[in-house]
Protein backbone atom coordinates (compact mmCIF):
# COMPACT_ATOMS: atom_id res chain seq x y z
CA UNK A 1 0.00 0.00 0.00
CA UNK A 2 1.19 3.51 -0.78
CA UNK A 3 2.71 5.28 2.18
CA UNK A 4 0.78 8.57 2.14
CA UNK A 5 2.58 9.98 5.14
CA UNK A 6 6.01 9.43 3.55
CA UNK A 7 4.91 11.20 0.36
CA UNK A 8 3.55 14.08 2.44
CA UNK A 9 6.82 14.37 4.37
CA UNK A 10 8.82 14.41 1.15
CA UNK A 11 6.68 17.22 -0.23
CA UNK A 12 7.06 19.15 3.02
CA UNK A 13 10.81 18.84 2.66
CA UNK A 14 10.57 20.27 -0.86
CA UNK A 15 11.05 17.01 -2.77
CA UNK A 16 9.13 17.80 -5.96
CA UNK A 17 9.70 14.34 -7.39
CA UNK A 18 7.13 13.07 -4.88
CA UNK A 19 4.41 15.23 -6.44
CA UNK A 20 3.08 12.92 -9.21
CA UNK A 21 2.70 9.96 -6.82
CA UNK A 22 1.10 12.25 -4.24
CA UNK A 23 -1.45 13.40 -6.81
CA UNK A 24 -2.23 9.78 -7.72
CA UNK A 25 -2.99 9.12 -4.06
CA UNK A 26 -5.13 12.22 -3.67
CA UNK A 27 -7.22 11.32 -6.73
CA UNK A 28 -7.74 7.77 -5.49
CA UNK A 29 -11.32 7.48 -4.18
CA UNK A 30 -11.06 3.93 -2.85
CA UNK A 31 -11.19 3.56 0.97
CA UNK A 32 -7.51 2.61 1.11
CA UNK A 33 -6.64 5.50 -1.19
CA UNK A 34 -8.63 7.91 0.95
CA UNK A 35 -6.89 6.94 4.14
CA UNK A 36 -3.47 7.27 2.46
CA UNK A 37 -4.54 10.69 1.15
CA UNK A 38 -5.60 11.83 4.62
CA UNK A 39 -2.23 10.78 6.03
CA UNK A 40 -0.51 12.61 3.20
CA UNK A 41 -2.52 15.79 3.69
CA UNK A 42 -1.92 15.74 7.43
CA UNK A 43 1.82 16.01 6.70
CA UNK A 44 1.36 19.17 4.63
CA UNK A 45 -1.32 20.76 6.84
CA UNK A 46 -0.89 24.18 8.35
CA UNK A 47 -0.10 22.57 11.66
CA UNK A 48 2.57 20.27 10.21
CA UNK A 49 4.05 23.06 8.10
CA UNK A 50 4.11 25.31 11.20
CA UNK A 51 2.28 28.06 9.33
CA UNK A 52 0.68 28.62 5.97
CA UNK A 53 2.45 27.06 2.97
CA UNK A 54 4.53 29.84 1.40
CA UNK A 55 3.50 29.00 -2.17
CA UNK A 56 1.50 31.56 -4.12
CA UNK A 57 -1.76 29.88 -5.13
CA UNK A 58 -3.04 31.52 -8.30
CA UNK A 59 -6.34 30.87 -10.05
CA UNK A 60 -6.42 31.46 -13.79
CA UNK A 61 -9.84 31.25 -15.36
CA UNK A 62 -11.59 32.38 -18.51
CA UNK A 63 -13.64 31.12 -21.43
CA UNK A 64 -12.28 28.62 -23.96
CA UNK A 65 -10.16 30.32 -26.60
CA UNK A 66 -9.35 33.33 -24.43
CA UNK A 67 -5.65 32.49 -24.59
CA UNK A 68 -5.10 30.91 -21.15
CA UNK A 69 -2.57 28.36 -22.38
CA UNK A 70 -0.53 30.94 -24.28
CA UNK A 71 -0.57 33.19 -21.27
CA UNK A 72 0.52 30.37 -18.98
CA UNK A 73 3.38 29.52 -21.36
CA UNK A 74 4.63 33.08 -21.03
CA UNK A 75 4.12 33.12 -17.23
CA UNK A 76 5.92 29.80 -16.77
CA UNK A 77 8.90 31.17 -18.74
CA UNK A 78 8.96 34.34 -16.63
CA UNK A 79 8.68 32.49 -13.31
CA UNK A 80 11.34 29.97 -14.26
CA UNK A 81 13.67 32.76 -15.39
CA UNK A 82 13.25 34.20 -11.88
CA UNK A 83 14.11 30.83 -10.36
CA UNK A 84 10.60 30.03 -9.08
CA UNK A 85 9.23 26.51 -9.38
CA UNK A 86 5.73 26.13 -10.84
CA UNK A 87 2.97 23.54 -10.64
CA UNK A 88 -0.09 23.85 -12.86
CA UNK A 89 -3.35 22.02 -12.22
CA UNK A 90 -5.24 22.24 -15.50
CA UNK A 91 -8.90 21.41 -14.90
CA UNK A 92 -11.04 20.46 -17.89
CA UNK A 93 -14.71 19.49 -17.90
CA UNK A 94 -15.80 15.84 -17.99
CA UNK A 95 -18.27 14.52 -20.50
CA UNK A 96 -21.64 14.20 -18.80
CA UNK A 97 -22.49 11.19 -20.89
CA UNK A 98 -19.38 9.05 -20.80
CA UNK A 99 -17.67 10.39 -17.68
CA UNK A 100 -14.48 10.61 -19.72
CA UNK A 101 -12.60 13.72 -20.69
CA UNK A 102 -10.14 15.10 -23.20
CA UNK A 103 -7.37 16.95 -21.44
CA UNK A 104 -5.51 19.04 -24.00
CA UNK A 105 -3.94 21.89 -22.04
CA UNK A 106 -0.67 20.12 -21.42
CA UNK A 107 -0.01 20.08 -25.17
CA UNK A 108 -0.58 23.81 -25.38
CA UNK A 109 1.58 25.00 -22.50
CA UNK A 110 5.23 25.38 -23.55
CA UNK A 111 7.63 23.77 -21.17
CA UNK A 112 11.00 22.08 -21.22
CA UNK A 113 10.67 18.35 -20.47
CA UNK A 114 14.14 18.38 -18.92
CA UNK A 115 13.13 21.03 -16.35
CA UNK A 116 11.99 19.43 -13.09
CA UNK A 117 10.93 22.85 -11.79
CA UNK A 118 7.69 22.67 -13.78
CA UNK A 119 4.88 20.22 -13.19
CA UNK A 120 1.71 20.12 -15.26
CA UNK A 121 -1.13 17.89 -14.18
CA UNK A 122 -4.33 17.71 -16.19
CA UNK A 123 -7.40 16.78 -14.24
CA UNK A 124 -11.00 16.25 -15.12
CA UNK A 125 -13.59 18.22 -13.21
CA UNK A 126 -15.47 15.00 -12.61
CA UNK A 127 -19.19 14.39 -12.57
CA UNK A 128 -19.96 16.86 -9.83
CA UNK A 129 -22.14 19.68 -11.15
CA UNK A 130 -20.32 22.99 -11.03
CA UNK A 131 -17.29 23.85 -9.03
CA UNK A 132 -13.97 22.24 -8.35
CA UNK A 133 -13.85 18.62 -7.33
CA UNK A 134 -12.41 18.06 -3.82
CA UNK A 135 -9.26 16.40 -5.24
CA UNK A 136 -8.35 19.68 -6.95
CA UNK A 137 -8.37 21.60 -3.68
CA UNK A 138 -6.38 18.87 -1.96
CA UNK A 139 -3.95 18.65 -4.86
CA UNK A 140 -3.34 22.39 -4.66
CA UNK A 141 -2.78 22.04 -0.91
CA UNK A 142 -0.22 19.27 -1.39
CA UNK A 143 1.63 21.00 -4.24
CA UNK A 144 1.80 24.24 -2.23
CA UNK A 145 4.18 22.48 0.15
CA UNK A 146 6.81 21.88 -2.55
CA UNK A 147 6.38 24.48 -5.31
CA UNK A 148 6.80 28.27 -5.25
CA UNK A 149 3.81 28.92 -7.49
CA UNK A 150 0.73 26.72 -7.85
CA UNK A 151 -1.70 27.62 -10.63
CA UNK A 152 -5.24 26.26 -10.82
CA UNK A 153 -6.46 26.74 -14.39
CA UNK A 154 -10.19 26.38 -15.04
CA UNK A 155 -12.56 26.99 -17.90
CA UNK A 156 -15.52 29.29 -17.62
CA UNK A 157 -16.87 32.67 -16.83
CA UNK A 158 -19.42 33.48 -14.18
CA UNK A 159 -19.50 30.51 -11.85
CA UNK A 160 -16.15 28.84 -11.55
CA UNK A 161 -14.26 31.87 -10.19
CA UNK A 162 -16.19 31.48 -6.94
CA UNK A 163 -14.82 28.00 -6.48
CA UNK A 164 -11.32 28.93 -7.55
CA UNK A 165 -11.47 31.75 -5.04
CA UNK A 166 -11.90 29.20 -2.25
CA UNK A 167 -8.62 27.59 -3.22
CA UNK A 168 -6.42 30.43 -4.45
CA UNK A 169 -4.80 33.52 -2.93
CA UNK A 170 -5.12 35.46 -6.16
CA UNK A 171 -7.65 34.98 -8.95
CA UNK A 172 -6.96 36.29 -12.45
CA UNK A 173 -9.77 36.24 -15.01
CA UNK A 174 -8.68 36.14 -18.62
CA UNK A 175 -10.72 38.15 -21.08
CA UNK A 176 -10.55 37.82 -24.83
CA UNK A 177 -11.00 41.16 -26.56
CA UNK A 178 -14.20 41.47 -28.53
CA UNK A 179 -16.25 39.10 -26.37
CA UNK A 180 -18.54 40.92 -24.01
CA UNK A 181 -19.40 38.09 -21.60
CA UNK A 182 -17.10 39.07 -18.78
CA UNK A 183 -18.18 42.69 -19.00
CA UNK A 184 -21.86 41.75 -18.84
CA UNK A 185 -21.38 39.31 -15.98
CA UNK A 186 -19.41 41.86 -13.98
CA UNK A 187 -21.98 44.60 -14.44
CA UNK A 188 -24.89 42.31 -13.67
CA UNK A 189 -23.22 41.06 -10.52
CA UNK A 190 -23.37 37.46 -11.78
CA UNK A 191 -19.64 37.26 -11.33
CA UNK A 192 -17.52 38.33 -8.39
CA UNK A 193 -14.93 40.95 -9.19
CA UNK A 194 -11.65 39.02 -9.60
CA UNK A 195 -8.35 40.20 -8.15
CA UNK A 196 -6.84 40.86 -11.55
CA UNK A 197 -8.33 41.12 -15.04
CA UNK A 198 -6.12 40.22 -17.97
CA UNK A 199 -6.97 41.18 -21.54
CA UNK A 200 -5.14 38.84 -23.88
CA UNK A 201 -4.18 39.23 -27.52
CA UNK A 202 -2.96 42.79 -27.00
CA UNK A 203 -1.40 42.46 -30.45
CA UNK A 204 -4.91 42.92 -31.83
CA UNK A 205 -4.41 46.62 -31.03
CA UNK A 206 -7.58 48.69 -30.93
CA UNK A 207 -9.92 45.85 -30.01
CA UNK A 208 -7.75 44.96 -27.02
CA UNK A 209 -7.49 48.60 -25.98
CA UNK A 210 -11.25 48.97 -26.17
CA UNK A 211 -11.79 45.84 -24.09
CA UNK A 212 -9.41 47.15 -21.47
CA UNK A 213 -11.15 50.54 -21.39
CA UNK A 214 -14.61 48.98 -21.04
CA UNK A 215 -13.50 46.76 -18.18
CA UNK A 216 -11.87 49.66 -16.36
CA UNK A 217 -15.08 51.70 -16.74
CA UNK A 218 -17.19 48.82 -15.40
CA UNK A 219 -14.89 48.44 -12.39
CA UNK A 220 -15.13 52.16 -11.66
CA UNK A 221 -18.92 52.00 -11.69
CA UNK A 222 -18.74 49.08 -9.28
CA UNK A 223 -16.47 51.07 -7.00
CA UNK A 224 -13.53 48.76 -7.60
CA UNK A 225 -11.20 51.07 -9.49
CA UNK A 226 -8.14 49.65 -7.72
CA UNK A 227 -8.56 46.25 -9.46
CA UNK A 228 -5.78 46.03 -12.04
CA UNK A 229 -6.68 45.50 -15.71
CA UNK A 230 -3.65 44.41 -17.73
CA UNK A 231 -3.14 43.88 -21.44
CA UNK A 232 -0.86 41.02 -22.39
CA UNK A 233 0.38 39.68 -25.70
CA UNK A 234 1.93 36.24 -25.64
CA UNK A 235 2.91 36.32 -29.31
CA UNK A 236 6.43 37.42 -30.04
CA UNK A 237 7.43 40.02 -29.14
CA UNK A 238 5.57 39.34 -25.87
CA UNK A 239 4.39 42.32 -23.89
CA UNK A 240 2.82 42.88 -20.52
CA UNK A 241 4.00 39.58 -19.00
CA UNK A 242 6.43 41.17 -16.54
CA UNK A 243 3.75 43.63 -15.49
CA UNK A 244 1.34 40.75 -14.87
CA UNK A 245 3.91 38.89 -12.77
CA UNK A 246 4.44 42.07 -10.74
CA UNK A 247 0.69 42.62 -10.32
CA UNK A 248 0.18 39.02 -9.12
CA UNK A 249 3.02 39.44 -6.61
CA UNK A 250 1.69 42.81 -5.43
CA UNK A 251 -1.77 41.36 -4.82
CA UNK A 252 -0.35 38.53 -2.83
CA UNK A 253 1.97 40.80 -0.81
CA UNK A 254 -0.99 42.89 0.32
CA UNK A 255 -2.92 39.88 1.67
CA UNK A 256 -3.23 38.90 5.31
CA UNK A 257 -2.39 35.35 4.26
CA UNK A 258 -3.29 33.43 7.46
CA UNK A 259 -6.67 35.19 7.61
CA UNK A 260 -7.43 34.54 3.93
CA UNK A 261 -6.46 30.87 4.04
CA UNK A 262 -8.33 30.29 7.29
CA UNK A 263 -11.46 31.78 5.78
CA UNK A 264 -11.03 29.64 2.65
CA UNK A 265 -10.70 26.46 4.68
CA UNK A 266 -13.86 27.27 6.60
CA UNK A 267 -15.82 28.07 3.43
CA UNK A 268 -14.56 24.90 1.77
CA UNK A 269 -15.51 22.78 4.78
CA UNK A 270 -19.00 24.24 4.78
CA UNK A 271 -19.41 23.72 1.04
CA UNK A 272 -18.16 20.16 1.31
CA UNK A 273 -20.44 19.45 4.28
CA UNK A 274 -23.46 20.78 2.40
CA UNK A 275 -22.58 18.73 -0.65
CA UNK A 276 -22.00 15.52 1.29
CA UNK A 277 -24.74 15.78 3.90
CA UNK A 278 -27.25 18.12 2.31
CA UNK A 279 -29.31 21.11 3.34
CA UNK A 280 -31.19 19.04 5.90
CA UNK A 281 -27.99 18.38 7.83
CA UNK A 282 -27.18 22.06 7.61
CA UNK A 283 -30.54 22.83 9.24
CA UNK A 284 -29.68 20.37 12.00
CA UNK A 285 -26.76 22.65 12.80
CA UNK A 286 -29.17 25.59 13.10
CA UNK A 287 -28.65 26.89 9.59
CA UNK A 288 -25.76 28.35 7.62
CA UNK A 289 -25.21 31.28 9.97
CA UNK A 290 -24.87 29.01 13.01
CA UNK A 291 -22.55 26.68 11.12
CA UNK A 292 -20.33 29.62 10.20
CA UNK A 293 -20.23 30.69 13.84
CA UNK A 294 -19.27 27.19 14.87
CA UNK A 295 -16.42 27.16 12.36
CA UNK A 296 -15.24 30.63 13.37
CA UNK A 297 -14.78 29.37 16.92
CA UNK A 298 -12.31 26.68 15.83
CA UNK A 299 -8.51 26.81 15.83
CA UNK A 300 -7.49 28.77 12.67
CA UNK A 301 -4.92 26.13 11.75
CA UNK A 302 -7.49 23.32 11.48
CA UNK A 303 -7.55 21.67 8.06
CA UNK A 304 -10.65 21.34 5.87
CA UNK A 305 -10.92 17.66 6.89
CA UNK A 306 -10.77 18.54 10.60
CA UNK A 307 -13.35 21.29 10.19
CA UNK A 308 -15.59 18.91 8.27
CA UNK A 309 -15.31 16.43 11.12
CA UNK A 310 -16.38 19.15 13.58
CA UNK A 311 -19.47 19.91 11.48
CA UNK A 312 -20.35 16.24 11.08
CA UNK A 313 -19.97 15.58 14.79
CA UNK A 314 -22.16 18.52 15.69
CA UNK A 315 -24.91 17.64 13.22
CA UNK A 316 -25.47 14.13 14.61
Amino acid sequence: MTDGAALGRRLREGDRSAAPAALNVIEDRSPAGRSAALELLAEVSTAAMKGEAPAHLIGVTGPPGAGKSCLLSALVAAWRAAGRTVAILAVDPSSKRSGGSLLGDRARIDHDPADDGVLIRSTAAGMRLGGLAPPTREAAEALAAAFDVVVVETVGVGQSETDVEQVCDTVAVIVQPGSGDTLQFLKAGIMEVPDILVVTKADLGDVALAARRDLAAALRSLGRRETPVLAVSSLPPPSGVDELVAALDAHRAALDLPAVRTRQRRLAALAEFTFESGERALRALGGRREAEKLLAAQDPALSVRDLLAVLEQQSR
Binding site: S94, S98, G99, G100, S101, L102, G104, R106, A107, P113
Partner: peptide, 21 residues
Amino acid sequence: AVRARDAGMDVVYEGIRLTPA
Protein backbone atom coordinates in the same frame (compact mmCIF):
# COMPACT_ATOMS: atom_id res chain seq x y z
CA ALA B 1 -8.27 10.02 -28.27
CA VAL B 2 -11.89 10.90 -29.04
CA ARG B 3 -13.07 7.30 -28.75
CA ALA B 4 -11.21 6.82 -25.45
CA ARG B 5 -13.05 9.82 -24.06
CA ASP B 6 -16.36 8.46 -25.34
CA ALA B 7 -15.54 5.18 -23.63
CA GLY B 8 -15.20 7.04 -20.35
CA MET B 9 -11.44 7.41 -19.99
CA ASP B 10 -9.58 10.56 -19.00
CA VAL B 11 -7.44 11.27 -22.03
CA VAL B 12 -4.29 13.39 -21.98
CA TYR B 13 -3.83 14.27 -25.65
CA GLU B 14 -0.31 15.54 -26.20
CA GLY B 15 -0.49 16.00 -29.96
CA ILE B 16 2.38 15.78 -32.40
CA ARG B 17 6.14 16.29 -32.52
CA LEU B 18 7.02 14.85 -29.14
CA THR B 19 10.48 13.84 -28.03
CA PRO B 20 10.78 10.58 -26.06
CA ALA B 21 11.74 12.68 -23.03
